[in-house]
Design a binder for these strands. Sequence first.
DNA 1: TTGTATGCGTTATCAT
DNA 2: ATGATAACGCATACAA
Lengths: 347, 347
Amino acid sequence: MKKQEGARITIKDIAKALNLSTATISRVLSNHPGISENTKKIVNDKVKEMGFALDPIASSFRSKKTKSIGVICPRIDIDFHSKVISGIEEYAYKQGYQITIFQSQDSYTKEKEIVHMLETSLAAGIIICPTLETKRYDHLSKLDKANIPLVVYDRANENLKANKVIINDFEASYNACSHLIQEGCKTLAHISGNQNVSIFKARLAGFKAALVDHNLPVHENLIRETENLSYEEGKAQAEILLQQQNTPDGIVCANDYTAAAALKVFRNSGFAIPEQVAIVGFSNYPIATIIEPQISTIDDSAYDMGLIAAKILIQQIEDKDMQVLDYQEIILKTKLIVRASSDSKKH
Amino acid sequence: MKKQEGARITIKDIAKALNLSTATISRVLSNHPGISENTKKIVNDKVKEMGFALDPIASSFRSKKTKSIGVICPRIDIDFHSKVISGIEEYAYKQGYQITIFQSQDSYTKEKEIVHMLETSLAAGIIICPTLETKRYDHLSKLDKANIPLVVYDRANENLKANKVIINDFEASYNACSHLIQEGCKTLAHISGNQNVSIFKARLAGFKAALVDHNLPVHENLIRETENLSYEEGKAQAEILLQQQNTPDGIVCANDYTAAAALKVFRNSGFAIPEQVAIVGFSNYPIATIIEPQISTIDDSAYDMGLIAAKILIQQIEDKDMQVLDYQEIILKTKLIVRASSDSKKH
DNA sequence: TTGTATGCGTTATCAT
DNA sequence: ATGATAACGCATACAA
């Protein structure tokens, strides 16, 4: 009886065609040792000839291993996260892994739900940027027991023991502030992000430390917290700064949207940028080079962060037996990019 | 003998605990008709009590169906695509589907490779924005035979028979141009995208049609094609426009980056915006409201596009039996957003 | 309404 | 170096 039209070609068909056992075919296909070069060749040839491909589902089912990496981020359509994911995808694809993406919408409940689902669906590993709400980490720590490797990126709380890929927000912000001081600023302001989030706390701390180290006063009234670092919030806070007695001559912003907003508010009020007020942003968004004057900023290497997160995750997936003893913590270098908004020489 | 610690709970365990057959458990779990309310209840209770969840891999293996939607786009870290994907993810997640993401990097070869892989991995369906290089569509049309529903978004070639979610680029561009004409512009320019791509062809065609319909001349020397609609290319083309005898008093740009560039070039050369040159962009990028003056643009409803793509895909996945006869083509409404760059009244 | 039995395609164990 | 065969967890055809 002829094989039904359209039916899937299986390992059995290859075995039959070559008078070999399915075991041998399987071994060739997964590069097991102890197969003669000759059979390797004839099997591979036949596989190509018949256009055969392993059924990844059957394979996963039997081996209890998948090639699928779960990625959880607050939202995909935020520039930073989409760049990270782009880096993850590119590396993972080359290594034969697929990435499955989830948006937590910054909801802790949803994050837990997604993690649990990935656990039961046998994800090979998980890469996550935890929500702003996440304070407890049980759902993540228990992945260890389930033998699912985990990498946290960007928002890495110190209470969570896990592999981490982060940037040194403290240092980056310290450098940004020091740069403004070197440009001659004396009265410095900071437009900050949500202070419940470690990275924004670190940026504020770096800002303050730079002031202290350079013997400049910390003006608490010039430290303005925002919730989401949106352009609108930046505008509102910049307007408050404008009304202070001690108007700042330098502003370190926790992202480029708020930097753009501050720039606009101060320029519209007649301040020369950077002569009277110098401004530095954070993250190197596209707008930073489109705004006039162009905004000095910190390159946060989002793409690299994704690439490296994928790299250490896959390394752990494939070295599962060899017991990785310590969690890795990769701190990526940031780079201060000086542009017209803070560079008196260029202006 | 006690069940081994850490071993997965299966349907069998539930069956044993309740003195029912695995078939019954399976039926309850997949909501089959013809199960008494009573057994439904005791099974569901036990399932909760034991913290059981179906093994999705085993389930897929057996039923030959997955809950995984493949999404292929040129790059994730492009604002438009990340918004579309965000929409896809949100809808799909609610319906119990996962999305697996791939970047084609605008390579036709890679696109084919990915599609083929999704075919063998039994994707429940595929959502794709084809590459700029894609001219042949065999790899996509044959998904029909494999019984994998397909939805194409944004770049939908007329040669490809498939479900499509697109915007009316012709109309959007026509409206943008007509708007400038109503504002009093007589000499209109267009900074266009790659003319091998249908949507950019349509935007140019819409631009021209508006001119013709309003009895204005089409100046071929004022139609400037770019490869990627980047800010830099926009600048270069704007500078060329500046040197023409017939300097334009209105520019329709195929995206907001080139619009921002044109705005900058013309303003730096002493032109008043919008009084001497009015400008309209396309896509409503974040920069459009940050640049000064703010840029008029077209809202391309990227998020909705993703949402709807997911919706019609899942509908087809679940109605597979009922033979969807025709391909759907959804054309989303666009909206002209008038801002200072083209609105003489507001200025 | 429920139970029995089979097999999906692959990998892994044990043999040879 | 290769073969025979069991087993993974579930869904379904068929039986009762």
